[in-house]
Write a protein that binds this DNA or RNA. Sequence first.
DNA 1: CACATATGTAAGAATCACTCACATTAAAGA
DNA 2: TCTTTAATGTGAGTGATTCTTACATATGTG
Lengths: 218, 218
Amino acid sequence: MPDAKAKTAPTRAAYHHGDLRAQLISAVRSLVETHGPDGFSVAEAARRAGVSSAAPYKHFKDRAEILRGVCSEAMDRLRAEMEAGAGRYPEGSAEAVAAVGLAYVTFAKTEPGVFRLVFGLTEGHENAPDLQSKGEGCFGVVVGAVAAHQRLSPDDPQVLYRAYILWTFVHGHSFLTIDNKVSVASAQIDDWSYLLTVSRAILTQPSAGQPTSGAGIG
Amino acid sequence: MPDAKAKTAPTRAAYHHGDLRAQLISAVRSLVETHGPDGFSVAEAARRAGVSSAAPYKHFKDRAEILRGVCSEAMDRLRAEMEAGAGRYPEGSAEAVAAVGLAYVTFAKTEPGVFRLVFGLTEGHENAPDLQSKGEGCFGVVVGAVAAHQRLSPDDPQVLYRAYILWTFVHGHSFLTIDNKVSVASAQIDDWSYLLTVSRAILTQPSAGQPTSGAGIG
DNA sequence: CACATATGTAAGAATCACTCACATTAAAGA
DNA sequence: TCTTTAATGTGAGTGATTCTTACATATGTG
């Protein structure tokens, strides 16, 4: 076996544990999912990765930095799924816009703990420019889909405004769904038809939501 | 001083500390506001109330139960402000509906930490029927305003559906606002005109959001 | 092969949630 | 009024947690 010491050997590497960083993030993700965003401990994550409780601090400065790592990884996945959703329908169609929203809601339903972590907590997110830019990237997917539908530039205020309304809407629906607040409305919502209906309404409303006297967009 | 031992003396009572329960909730509320929903400790709250670190456990079973107490108190205030908002405009007007939303958003902006606690965490909320019912009470305010506007019964599916859409919007907008995500949309949103515009759109849309073939409301 | 660097461990300090035995007070009955 | 009882608070202690420090071990480069 000439490649016994392959530098990038992914699994069961040497003694120095392959790459702990990724394994820790994975462990924390699973912990956040099962025990909630707050019910996770660095010690338990280390235990699951089979290392001492001091090892994580060689890769992360902080408990908060681990969380930020999980957020970052999750936002990458979220964006990928939003883009995949849009790509499943003709560019510029209302379906493409709704599909972006469906990806968002589906992510929230699939990984509610991580979703809450990403959008609920603000522990150490202030000083995290990469998270900020990844958030903007996700929003950019919405903007892109809306711009394609309206045949306008992504910088157009109308596009940004409608995209924001859509985002607001999808975000709120996601939260209320995973909090089981939907049942409160005694409504059984089918996500796809719901999102499609609302997307169409927002996209086609005459000069939808154009706020009075330019107060809306600065 | 004949009333030196007045039974209901609210302030600076005896040695048994007046009523610790309320004071603890207040201390926790302030801690949650300044240090975030997770950055609070029972010990610190006890310290602020001037009691030993074991005292809180005479009033609350759990750390989670303290949080639930804060949530409960906060939801009472939220509902009161939503009702006050609606009462500021003629019953049945779109302004009344928007005012309910504005109260919601204002609450989130005024007490972002508590807002996140109420709607973000799910630590021990499952087994909290009182919180559940208080949440339904808040939604009921929205439903009431919408029903008045539509001149329909609060049980009407159309009313519930529109109320849910409105709630979704306002909830999402609140979260994105306190997370500073609004700036991402390069939008400077004036809450009142935004809410009024969106409320009018949702309230007046022909058969707004009536989902295809009854899939929306069960 | 030496040596700098990355990565791990072990032990410990400080804090926290929570418990238990005990002290003090308020309220209710004899 | 005196005694009893339940409510409320304290002090000390347990086990777990985060994070630090000093030290051990592996990797790769000259």
